[in-house]
Simulated scan of single mutants.
Amino acid sequence: MARIVNAAAAQMGPIAKSETRKDTVRRLVEMMREAKARGSDLVVFTEMALTTFFPRWLIEDEAELDSYYETEMPGPQTQPLFDEAKKLGIGFYLGYAELAHEDGRKRRFNTSILVDRSGNIVGKYRKVHLPGHAEPQPGRTHQHLEKRYFEPGNFGFKVWRAFGGVMGMCICNDRRWPETYRVMGLQGVEMVMLGYNTPYDHTGHKDIDSLTQFHNHLSMQAGAYQNATWVIGTAKCGVEEGSNMCAQSAIIAPSGEIIAQAVSLEDEVITARCDLDLGQRYRQTIFNFAKHREPEAYRLIVERKGAEPPPEA
């Protein structure tokens, strides 16, 4: 019997700086209802889905900076999202900025959670691969200060058994790094959920930035295919506070094929019937890690690091 997860990606249009949590949660609830009406078991929201992408600005006032972070989840302003999920019987992935007090100090993370159909948090992830800068860069209309406002995640890449399969999470820039998918792939991941807020000018080099849409899909499709997993990538898009954001949210099969894609620059729900057993075929054939992967070869390469290079042919 096939293991089906009816999944949705809930792409978000811009969130204005003036938009309140209540306004934003209302938008998320509406998309959750649409996803459920279309038969979805799980809806994937985007990275930092509760606020505008504040790392585009230098914020020196501590109280202002703190206002963008969640200190508890759920909290009073996000509880309606959990209540609606429980009422509808639908799970969700949600990205947000997290402020935690751990190890005797204030810590900031770019975080996502996985919530089951009963409204309970079953998994939590903190973004590992932080892009951008710690200090403002001259000549940029919009900054990219994730390294200033977050520290790298300390949970690693875990997987969780939920929705009848093995689920994984990552966030935005994580999608570009093959080890993100491979670490989860080695744990048998069957569906990877990720949200992203990607501006078109994120590198500052026009030749690279002009390929933003291509690289977005390339990295997710490669990760899906090479690790025999479904990937659901959900964007924050449109022109947000003057910054152009990448769209094209997508649901990608273990074959690497895009089977559903958003077409707008606004709030938009896309859905797909995801057969988790499809990944099994790839894990039993092309990407049978036990039979075909050679970790010993990687060890030898590491051990030889620093040795004299081979003579040129």
Rank of each mutant, 00 (worst) to 15 (best):
A297N: 12
E47Q: 12
E257H: 06
R182W: 15
D209V: 08
P295D: 13
A250H: 02
S255Q: 08
S264R: 12
A224Q: 04
A253H: 15
Y225H: 12
M245H: 14
F45I: 11
A253M: 14
S219V: 06
Q137H: 01
T51Q: 06
M184I: 05
H129F: 12
V122Q: 07
H144D: 06
P80Y: 08
K127N: 15
L114D: 12
T234I: 03
E312D: 05
D207P: 00
Q137W: 00
I15H: 01
H101W: 09
I286T: 14
P311W: 04
S67C: 04
N216R: 08
A307C: 04
M169K: 05
T78E: 07
R3H: 12
K236M: 15
L42Y: 14
G91T: 13
L114W: 03
R299L: 14
F214S: 06
L88I: 01
Y93E: 09
G223E: 05
S243H: 02
T271D: 06
Q280M: 10
L194D: 02
K127V: 03
V239K: 14
K291E: 15
P74F: 04
K124E: 14
A16T: 14
K305I: 02
H144F: 13
I251V: 11
L58T: 09
N120T: 13
E296K: 08
E257G: 02
I301F: 11
R108F: 15
G39F: 02
